[in-house]
């Protein structure tokens, strides 16, 4: 149980987080919605910090707030979609949304129930870190690069493939545009760049 100032901070951040998560779906303006999502992420990072997982908190900020949410913001700001219209139609999908919500809730409950039954699960999840000799970051790195190195690298390769795929899909080399080729510019010499012509008097070239 949390006591003292830690509890105060916990409830403070959780309250803001839940409130802003509600605002994400409640506000009309999609840009405001993304901004509230950022506030939610930010408070989640604060909760991670309170739990002593400082590395996860910083990674959450860097990856989600610093990159993913900016992408959302770009898309929402630049796409000219009739969001009000979209919102009106979205009530059609209400039942399926509620269904998925309940499914996720049920799964969460099952996870917590199974954790109390399976002894191995709780041993893995709540294995204590020797905080005196190793920091959070080191402990995470040790696990990630030894026991789970294979999965980690597979994950990395999947992301790389996705990135290359996106580049291939969106890259169009249009012809007829003047492009700057740095290598070509640098490799020019006075012989290839300048042409000297003898101009006779009273005549053009």
């Amino acid at each position: 149980m949390l006591t003292g100032p830690a509890a105060v901070f916990f409830y403070f951040f959780s309250l803001i987080m839940v409130a802003s998560a509600v605002m994400v779906v409640a506000v009309r303006n999609p840009v405001h919605s993304v901004l509230f999502l950022i506030l939610t992420f930010f408070n989640a990072a604060a909760l991670f910090l309170l739990a002593g997982a400082e590395f996860l908190a910083m990674i959450l900020l860097i990856v989600y707030v610093g990159a993913v949410a900016i992408l959302f913001l770009f898309v929402v700001m630049m796409l000219d979609v009739g969001f009000i219209e979209l919102r009106r139609r979205s009530f059609k999908y209400m039942p399926i949304g509620v269904l998925i919500g309940f499914l996720l809730l049920a799964e969460l409950i099952i996870i917590f129930l199974s954790s109390s039954f399976s002894s191995k699960f709780s041993a893995v999840v709540s294995a204590p870190i020797d905080m005196v000799t190793r920091s959070n970051t080191q402990a995470l790195g040790d696990v990630l690069y030894t026991d789970y190195a294979f999965y980690f690298e597979v994950g990395g390769i999947i992301l790389l493939v996705a990135m290359i795929g996106v580049i291939v899909l969106t890259l169009h080399h249009r012809t007829g545009i003047k492009r700057q080729s740095i290598a070509e510019q640098v490799s020019r010499t006075s012989e290839t760049a300048i042409e000297i012509k003898k101009v006779e008097s009273n005549k053009g070239i």
Partner: peptide
């Protein structure tokens, strides 16, 4: 990491 996060 904190500095990197906040500056991003």
């Amino acid at each position: 990491l904190y500095i990197f996060a906040i500056s991003s």
